[in-house]
Computed example of a mutant assay.
Amino acid sequence: MNVEPDTALQLLRAFSRIEFALKQIPEFVNGAVGEKPDTQWSAFYVHVRRHIQNQLSQENKDLLLGGGPNDPPPMKMQISAQRRIEFVDAPLGDGPEGDRLMDAARRVRNNLVHGGKEHARQQRYAGHDDKLARAAIDVMFLAMASHPEVSQLAFYD
C-alpha cells in the first residue's frame, strides 16, 4: 500500500493496542489451552458495530466500503493453479454495516502489513491508500472507545 510513514505507524499502533486489549478478555480469545491465542473479532463486533456505524463519517464509510466511483473492488490473494499469487474479487459480505467496516479496516491493515498490490508509481488514485489507512484508524479508535474494558486496556497511557 502507498501510505505515508506516519499514517502506517498510527495504523499499526492502533491495531496492536486493540489486539493486545482483546487478548486480555476471555470472551474475545479463540484457541485451546496451551495453544497460541487468536483474536475472536466476530465476538467483538457485536459490542462495537452500532457505535462505529453511528459515529464514522459518511466519507470514511464510503471509502472503506467501496462506495466511491474510483474505488477498486476489494480483492484478496490466492495461489493459482500455476502456483503463482493472483488477486481475486473478495466482497466484504452482507452483514451489518459496522461489521463490514471492521472487516474493511482489518483488510487495510493486512494489505499494509503483507505488502501492497501496486508500486508507488502505479497509483491510479493519488493519496487513496493513505485515505483508506486513515479511515481504518478512525474505525479502530471508535471500536476501542465503544467498549469500556477494551478502552481501558488499550488507552492505558
Rank of each mutant, 00 (worst) to 15 (best):
V46Y: 11
R50Y: 02
E86Q: 12
N60H: 12
G67F: 06
P91L: 01
P91K: 13
A43I: 05
Y45G: 13
D71Y: 03
Q53N: 03
P91F: 04
A43K: 12
R50I: 01
V88D: 14
P73C: 01
L65T: 01
S80C: 10
I52M: 03
R84A: 14
S42C: 07
K61D: 05
Q53I: 00
A81Y: 09
N70W: 05
G68V: 04
L63T: 03
R83Y: 09
R100T: 00
A90C: 05
G67T: 00
H47F: 08
F87D: 04
D94A: 11
I85R: 15
Y45H: 05
Y45W: 08
R49K: 10
W41K: 07
Q58S: 12
R50A: 06
P74E: 08
Q78V: 03
N60R: 01
E59K: 12
E59F: 04
D99K: 14
E86S: 15
P74D: 03
M77H: 11
M77G: 10
F87M: 10
L92R: 14
D94R: 13
R83N: 11
A81V: 15
L63N: 07
N70V: 02
S42D: 11
V88R: 14
I52Q: 00
Q78E: 14
P69R: 11
D94I: 09
L92I: 05
R49G: 02
L92Q: 15
D94L: 11
R84G: 10
Y45S: 15
